[in-house]
């Protein structure tokens, strides 16, 4: 039950990250999506992959995306 609920939450977060107009909010929603995916990996008996998912994607990926957003601009489609 909780597994299907987490899959639903992950899908909703992925759609929200694509649809967000502000790039910084999209990056933060993507970080939340990575945490949910890490919990899904843990429930599927792969704690090693869950640790790597949290540490690499949710921490370093978010940092690199924030640096990229800081250089290119927050609004979508406006130069």
């Amino acid at each position: 039950m909780i597994f299907e609920l987490l899959l639903l939450v992950a899908t909703i977060l992925a759609i929200a990250a694509v649809e967000a107009k502000d790039m910084l909010y999209a990056v933060l929603i993507l970080g939340g999506l990575d945490l949910v995916v890490a919990v899904i990996f843990y429930l599927m008996a792969a704690p090693d992959i869950a640790i790597t998912q949290i540490v690499v994607t949710a921490v370093f990926g978010t940092f690199i995306y924030v640096v990229a957003v800081n250089r290119t601009g927050r609004k979508e489609g406006i130069e």
Partner: peptide, 9 residues
């Protein structure tokens, strides 16, 4: 669980 790579990160 863990290892060299996650610990380093």
């Amino acid at each position: 669980p863990g290892g060299g790579f996650p610990g380093g990160v």
